[in-house]
Design a protein around this nucleic acid. Sequence first.
DNA 1: AATGAATGAGCATTCATTCAT
DNA 2: TATGAATGAATGCTCATTCAT
Lengths: 235, 235, 235, 235
Amino acid sequence: MPRPPGHGPGFEVRRQKIIDVAASLFAEQGYAATSINDLGRAVGLAKGALYYYIVSKENLLIEIQSRVMRPLLSRARQIAELDEDPLLRLRLLSESLLTIIFRRLDHIWVYEHDYRSLSGDELETLLGQRSDFEHLVSGLLAEAVDQGIFRALQPRLATLQFLNLHNHTYQWVRPEGQWDAAFLSREYCATLFRGFGASDNALPDVEERAAAFKRDRPDLPLDPEAEWTPAAVGG
Amino acid sequence: MPRPPGHGPGFEVRRQKIIDVAASLFAEQGYAATSINDLGRAVGLAKGALYYYIVSKENLLIEIQSRVMRPLLSRARQIAELDEDPLLRLRLLSESLLTIIFRRLDHIWVYEHDYRSLSGDELETLLGQRSDFEHLVSGLLAEAVDQGIFRALQPRLATLQFLNLHNHTYQWVRPEGQWDAAFLSREYCATLFRGFGASDNALPDVEERAAAFKRDRPDLPLDPEAEWTPAAVGG
Amino acid sequence: MPRPPGHGPGFEVRRQKIIDVAASLFAEQGYAATSINDLGRAVGLAKGALYYYIVSKENLLIEIQSRVMRPLLSRARQIAELDEDPLLRLRLLSESLLTIIFRRLDHIWVYEHDYRSLSGDELETLLGQRSDFEHLVSGLLAEAVDQGIFRALQPRLATLQFLNLHNHTYQWVRPEGQWDAAFLSREYCATLFRGFGASDNALPDVEERAAAFKRDRPDLPLDPEAEWTPAAVGG
Amino acid sequence: MPRPPGHGPGFEVRRQKIIDVAASLFAEQGYAATSINDLGRAVGLAKGALYYYIVSKENLLIEIQSRVMRPLLSRARQIAELDEDPLLRLRLLSESLLTIIFRRLDHIWVYEHDYRSLSGDELETLLGQRSDFEHLVSGLLAEAVDQGIFRALQPRLATLQFLNLHNHTYQWVRPEGQWDAAFLSREYCATLFRGFGASDNALPDVEERAAAFKRDRPDLPLDPEAEWTPAAVGG
DNA sequence: AATGAATGAGCATTCATTCAT
DNA sequence: TATGAATGAATGCTCATTCAT
């Protein structure tokens, strides 16, 4: 991102502070609902001055996204390349991801909510980074399957479960609450690793019973929007 | 035969179609970024005529939310009250939730993304409904713990894992794709029920090894934003 | 005002009722702030049906104006032409004017407030009628001066005083209140006839004292917007 | 030298000019019928720039009202508290009121016509100020009655006559015309003070004759809307 | 005689951005 | 560096009016 030439020493510092504030405002009110005026007020700078530091509102979004995505991806790559078994690497990657969610909750809100406000090029970059991250996870999961640690999972579906579990955390987590990133990581991985594990200790009949239920109770369809049929009175 | 005052027979039909279109636009571009003009264009109606059918933009949001939340909650309550074991009920509730996500994906997008655009009263109602749904899940999980089917879980955290796994699905699911709601429900429940299950077959040492890693490799902190310390060369 | 041909017997009745309602709404909220929708609701007719009876919103204004102005002018002419002394005729005309103010208070509100919403032609007609009425008053006042009943007044200024006193009544009068038109007319005429009367019983020195005050107290200018000068401390 | 944040030196000047123009437009066309676009055009500023100076359209109304009401009330209070006889104070107050009508004719138009466009709080304030002013007049008139300068008048009705006579002036006065505020005040007070005066020089029989007329001429009712009865031909 | 539906212009207001100073 | 001032397009919404039925 080329900056106009000839900036004083404080320029970058202030610029970063402005992005901080923008992230917090965007997280609170949403990107579209936050005006440049709001930002100026929160920063204590007139609108005109603001534009000395920022190039556009959309650019703030880009910077916020990459603040989160760049270090995460870089650390994730390091972890994935460690010479450790896949389970440990997954566990470390999980904690890494949760750590940044805890530390940059507002950035994550913006990242998760407003990435669709980006236009073509930038959106593509971002989606590329997301995809890169997903592939790191996929790779580790596949290794675990290959090594027989996990049962035979569809790798894509296992990845999505891993990501669902972690990524949705931003919706409810309180960084100052009772749980920290390490704890959540331990819990999530306990669930996932047991859940994905090879040993066949599942609760074996629940699927059959579910199938039976669907067959025997047409009056209570699982589709919430389906009509309610009065229960068949058995003979 | 003069019709009673109010609206003609086609009114409600068209109104519902307009809400359909709104849901799809809001899902695509976000609520704040979609203008009433956009909606009019998509519907093929001038702005003025649009307002013959809708009461306000925000009201569209409300209608979309409740289209999703009302049937879901009602069906979820029926399921929770069934005289079946908690595992089966969780499984049915899971499929119910995923079914509505598949059938009303755009509504769910709006529901998940733009609920914060609602003002006081409506937001409160919505959050109340969300909370009601969560309590249904919590109750079933607690039953499973009580009956010794699941190990001793923090009920709140188990609930959040259940919800993370399901709710984040809207982010990537393709209703016309290879998987359907029943399949995803089976997979998610397999993961969760094994993961939450009582039998102690976890992969026991991963936590110790993670702790050791954090101790031995201060050069590779899990926080993606922490400084990279050149690896200590051990002696 | 040509009406479309072929109306049933109830047409004119209903039309008049609609104008009644319009007058009351316009009086309450102002012409510009009252919508045709408001009118439809108040009348119990859909907008479309309304236009079967009215030609336009502005036309309602015209009808309301002439409902008030036509009978008033006609009666005023009859009174002015009576073979009675000017004082009596002024007194009768005063009561006539106040009577219509009492009976048609809402029309008068509209008449006084919103006549400027009329466009060229109609406005001219209205102003012509106003002017006709004023000339009737002027004529009677001039007669009274000629006959020596009133002192030598500038006829225009006397007319304006007569009209000010009467016309502003609509601003505060309550038709169901303690006073009726006859009473107000008696009081107004008592004031005006004494005030205009020939006998020189004025309170003679108030003008001199007013002049003195203005001279001696430059610190308290009568112009409310003039600067306050600290009072000159006398020696 | 960086100026403190807020507004430059020309801001308030321009702001006041905008309110001036608004007052003149509102007076000409009415508040509701004047658009912010009209104002922008008249001021030579794009709509966006206009809002840099004004807070809202309604706020313009408020500013206009208080421009007129604040100085008037303040000056009126000073006059009412003077150590002079009530007649002189009434005369001075009359001139004060007329002076502001002359100087701020457009403001007065707005004040008199569009006060009902104000919403709750502001309307209450305004009505309170109007009432305060009326009480000042009432007090002086009551003093004059108590001192026997005026005959026994109903104080409320006397006040309303005073106000009718003065306040309706804005409807026809031309500030650049032949009359000025001092002249009108002299004339109005001459009428009122004689009219209210104690000496019993009224034209005593006009009321009896009016009563007789009403009795004897049922064919010519004073109500302009009453049916015309063909005159009874007397014997 | 009356309706529901539609229109297009207009409304007050907000916004991201620019620029001379 | 920072400001106040300006712009023009866009926003959600209302309105008087029309018209096929």
